[in-house]
Nucleic acid binder design. Structure first.
Lengths: 306, 306
DNA sequence: AAATAACATGAATGAAATTCATAATAAACA
DNA sequence: TGTTTATTATGAATTTCATTCATGTTATTT
């Protein structure tokens, strides 16, 4: 037989009640059950656990060492059980977020700050620049939420819309597009397009604007960060497609100008991808709500998903 | 269902092997058993323990918290089991000794020192001046060994002889008994007898010498410690009955003289009383042996039990 | 897309813990 | 010291629980 937590509980109960029968009551078993249990323990360890010829019962050294173990272990077990209960109620847990969109920091950091206030027990983490496909990692539990503007149909993954945002083209000050106010895909055939260094099919400008029209820019280059792209645009090295909120502050500082993609502008949607299982997890839903509200209140050129 | 150590072992095994089947092998159960077990756990805690859609297996936060618990608890359990094994083999344990005879320190302390060398794992303790009857305490496990010169027939208690010792009468220098060399009970009728403050029937001088002859000293008084008794004798305040070994050093320092009780002297026997159950305990027997040898080599006026 | 490896599941089995009834023992009391 | 009372121990019957077996399902590899 193996030592189990049940036995430690018994030892503790016997030690506190000093009577088998009372201890058995406290443990919600019969006195007989407890007697048998102790006897088995004694046989497996080849040692008496308490002195039988005395009442109130007194533990032997062997019994004492089990009691010591019980006193060490049982509080730990109770703590762990409490933690598990929190996890199952969804008040505690883990939220590892990944973003592909580098400009998302702008709304994500404030959203996370707001989230922390309501859900202090949830451990937050943020990865960006996932070289690999984030969705398998999401399924595997390496990630818990992926921010994406490109919902794909993967079994076990749900895409919750966060907000719609206007994609714009950052162009140098005085660029010819500015007076038109917007561009059509064909306008870009002679331009150098600057994008984030991710797969083409993940870039809204291609997926939603250029590819449907069968247009490819003359040249393309990449930059890691928004500020770098703005720099390049400002230096007449190309034009960049960015969410309008990301361009906004640079327009105000007169570094670049912006034009819409198509008449009325091209709107994309940002989604939070989570495991379908987590659709029931309260803090997950709460995070999405908080991110929505935070972004809508903070960003320029965003609107609630229609 | 309740969380048990078995489950923690399973979580650990799953975490290290990253495969249910391999973990099951390591735990010597079938893969099916382990799968069922985990399923039960998940149902009781209402939380998944690892991500099923990924291989190698990865723990969820709930699984992690159980793993943490396992890593904390299992070493403690192993330690306790090792300790219990030591106790059952008799290489570890407890030896709480009680003495009534205050002069016994002289041989008991060196004996305990010698014992510690051979049995470092045994926890030693010494109580003296047990106001109450020590034998029930011995049966109850409050004590493990009682040094007594008065073997009584109690079920469950065994008396192991340590050594024979000569009882003598410490008398003031120049006392009239000295030239006789020994006294008969009647000689004490006109004396003040100094004894340890314990029940009369526990004192060898009464039990073995005076009571059989129906003699009671004129006066009696008590002293706690040997040195006090010697002081009183030296000051002509009475005569004291003590083991010859206890008087010996004071004779050499010319503080008192000693005379035998009866012609040839009165010899008592000192016993170690232990629980009969402990007759099989190796360190118990070893202690008695060590005490015997230490005393015989150290004390004056003792001999091996005939 | 097929083959393979791994996990999940349901029913049957088996082992182990519990209960019931009662005997044995210790403690309290007279 | 015996008698009563309270408590623990024991054996057999029972129930509960974990495990296995056989097989289905799902993921991964080729």
């Amino acid at each position: 037989m193996y030592l189990e937590i049940r036995h430690l509980r018994s030892i503790q109960a016997i030690n506190t009640h000093k009577k088998l029968s009372a201890a058995a009551d406290a443990l919600c078993v019969t006195q007989s059950a407890l007697s048998h249990q102790i006897k088995n323990l004694e046989e497996t360890f080849n040692a008496e656990l308490f002195f039988r010829k005395s009442r109130p019962l007194k533990l032997t050294p062997a019994g004492e060492s089990l009691l010591k173990l019980a006193n060490e272990i049982i509080p730990l077990v109770l703590d762990a059980e409490k933690e598990l209960k929190q996890i199952s109620l969804g008040t505690s847990g883990r939220l590892h977020i990944a973003i592909e969109c580098h400009s998302c920091f702008e709304w994500l950091i404030p959203s996370m700050d707001n989230f922390k206030i309501d859900w202090p027990e949830v451990s937050l983490d943020l990865s960006f620049g996932f070289a690999f496909d984030p969705f398998p990692a999401l399924l595997d539990g390496k990630l818990d939420l992926v921010v994406s503007s490109d919902p794909v149909d993967i079994d076990g993954i749900a895409f919750l819309p966060l907000f719609d945002f206007k994609m714009q083209l950052a162009v140098p000050l005085g660029h010819k597009f500015i007076e038109k106010g917007f561009v059509v895909p064909e306008d870009l055939e002679d331009e150098t397009l600057i994008t984030y260094p991710v797969d083409r099919e993940r870039l809204d400008i291609y997926r939603g604007f250029l590819d449907p029209a069968g247009v490819t820019p003359k040249e393309s280059r990449t930059a890691e960060m928004t500020i770098m792209m703005i720099q390049l645009v400002n230096s007449n090295c190309g034009i960049a497609s960015l969410p309008s909120w990301a361009i906004h502050e640079y327009i105000e500082r007169n570094r670049v100008a912006a034009v819409d993609l198509g008449k009325g502008g091209y709107w994309g949607t940002l989604y939070a991808a989570i495991r379908e299982k987590d659709l029931q997890t309260p803090y997950m839903n709460s995070f999405v709500d908080i991110a929505k509200n935070t972004s809508l209140g903070l960003l320029f050129g965003v609107r609630d998903k229609k």
